[in-house]
Design a protein around this nucleic acid. Structure first.
Lengths: 181, 181
DNA sequence: ACTCCATATGCACTTTGTTGCATATCAAGG
DNA sequence: CCTTGATATGCAACAAAGTGCATATGGAGT
């Protein structure tokens, strides 16, 4: 359900094509809502059928045609309504933690490698978030509200990554890395 | 995919009925993998069809029959194999953060209420985790490995909840609660 | 020449999770 | 007496997300 509203919100910031939206979801929306291009195109089609967005085809020589979408009035109404509805928290489902419940069948070296990979991923993400923080939100007080809210989402990404790193510090004591990378 | 392995891991700790498993998933597995009883029964059926678990029907007077499942050898093999396979991290999809990207359409009072609810939820969960910590893991060093790993999962729950509370401290500055509860 | 990558859009199939409903018994409380 | 809640198991329909594949062009690198 929320994908469509993520799309509407993104389109409201600026009209875009499916391709551009895909890029936004990969970059500065990755810590908020993940979606593939297939999912995005599919949902944009539905949104269009339901009249929540309008489409404009832009012909290009040298490149495939682009379809630019923008939010319709009905779309804005739908978005506003959804915003006012409290959303249930997403359920936790983490395969890594599931593994911890397998006890004796769990190989410590395999696990250590998986933890190392996770650490790398977290560090990379954290670095990317820090980079965004530096470039766009150097002085969060002077930023207009719209972007201050986005900064809050980014802050969540940062705090989330940090909390995973803190957990990894504990987990790596149980699964010491053999360090044969 | 991971649900079945969560079931196998849980059954390996101790054979159980779908009903008992449902209770475990609701209590001390809630911070690891969420599943409803419908999902659990369905997956147990598949697991049985595939020979990864065996079932024993226990007739009860006064109560509906129970079907107790236990992991078969094939099941243990499948579990071990899965454990050795690195699992991709679950993608972030958070409707609350999506809302932050809607900018001007987002009502501050509505948001403040949603944050308050989230805070309550986090605090409740944290208290529940702390309780588990106290009752089962008072001295983590003296606990056998199998349960030390479960404690690690619990630690993740605790750190996760704390990191959300830290974020809420920041978010509530942007959406001050009117405190008319 | 050939391959890879970016641009640009999509369909079809499968898996996974959600939601509503169904059934049967017993104990406890109003 | 009647309802609610715990015990105990499931089916069916639907929604959401994942995976594989398809197509078309142009530029850059080997």
């Amino acid at each position: 359900m929320a994908l469509r509203y993520a799309l509407l919100a993104a389109l409201q910031e600026e009209p875009a094509t499916g391709y551009e939206l895909t890029q936004r979801f990969r970059t500065y929306l990755a810590h908020v809502w993940n979606a593939t291009h297939q999912q995005i195109y599919r949902e944009l089609g539905k949104l269009h059928d339901e009249g929540l967005v309008t489409a404009e085809t832009i012909a290009q020589s040298e490149r495939p045609d682009r379809k630019q979408y923008r939010v319709s009035e009905a779309g804005e109404t739908a978005l506003t309504q959804w915003l006012a509805t409290p959303q249930p928290r997403p359920a936790t489902r983490d395969p890594l933690l599931v593994k911890l419940f397998a006890g004796d069948n769990l190989d410590a070296r395999v696990m250590a490698r998986e933890l190392a990979e996770l650490r790398q991923q977290c560090e990379q993400r954290l670095a990317a978030y820090r980079e965004m923080e530096r470039t766009w939100f150097r002085d969060p007080g002077s930023v207009p509200r719209r972007y201050r809210l986005q900064y809050l989402a980014l802050r969540r990404g940062i705090l989330g990554a940090q909390s995973w790193l803190a957990w990894l510090d504990e987990a790596e004591r149980e699964f010491p890395s053999t360090d044969d990378s």
